[in-house]
Nucleic acid binder design. Structure first.
Lengths: 145, 145
DNA sequence: GTTATTGCAAAGTTTTTGCATGTAC
DNA sequence: GTACATGCAAAAACTTTGCAATAAC
């Protein structure tokens, strides 16, 4: 194996592509490997990040590819502020947000106890949780004054 | 004194307006009273709803007014799907969802213990919570089989 | 060789802004 | 009478789409 380690997400992408008669392109590989380094990112931010090494990679391709990742179950789109955030699913589950409605600051947190209670609620209703989203909106100490 | 016609939100709006040298207009009154009947609504939906009785009320006015309600602490903007949802703050807090990714069924629940823990997390980070959003995605008992 | 993908630009959506006119104070 | 608000249209911001050229299979 020349490349040695292909992360499981890369394999998952290839499988999704194969199953849908889609192709594994240089851009898709590039965008996925950049994406895996993030917890969440916007299309625009990734565009700028990749433009340094690949100036011809178009923003439309990034959007198309991130949307593809959502279809493949690797990413989850979240509308936040004025742009769409693409969350890295493999980092999800322990990834909740505290969002300041004053200045837009975002703090990430995880809380096992909350997660345990979520499981409890789900079980009580006969559900098996696949993923969740918890966002707390409020004012940070700065903005409260 | 018990003027059944002026809900506390209307008074809160008036107070906010007074404090900021803004004016209490027919449109603001109209939009607020329509807003209070909803749990959440988009600007576009409100535009259509109000157009029946007030065909000259512009969409820009609705946006400006709903954003004003956010400033006044009566509403909370949430980006969802492709449009902004304006949530009625007074209805929020006990409104979490359990969503089946198989059949789309939505169960509403509330859990005081989770809410308490949320407050705890917020406090630990110096935040004051205004509202929150919790969605659990999974499979219901039907769809698991 | 065939079919999907890319890059670019153009179009589509949703939201905000500019400005003349109207309205609350 | 003096601000601020409104309505309309135009602009801005973000995302998707059309199409000819290109790359994967």
């Amino acid at each position: 194996m020349a490349s040695g380690k292909s992360p499981k997400e890369m394999d998952a992408l290839k499988e999704h592509l194969a199953r849908h008669q889609l192709k594994f392109t240089r851009q898709r590989e590039l965008i996925l490997s950049a994406f895996l380094r993030q917890e969440h990112i916007t299309a625009e931010a990734m565009y700028h990040q990749l433009a340094k090494t690949d100036p011809h990679l178009g923003l439309a391709t990034i959007y198309r590819t991130l949307n593809l990742f959502c279809d493949a179950g690797l990413a989850q789109a979240r509308h936040f502020g004025s742009q769409t955030q693409y969350d890295n699913i493999s980092h999800k589950g322990h990834h909740d947000h505290l969002i300041c409605t004053g200045c837009g600051k975002i703090i990430e947190f995880e809380n096992c106890e909350i997660e345990r209670l979520q499981e409890e609620v789900a079980a009580k209703n006969g559900f098996t949780i696949q993923t969740h989203r918890l966002e707390l909106y409020g004012l940070c100490s700065h903005c409260r004054h």
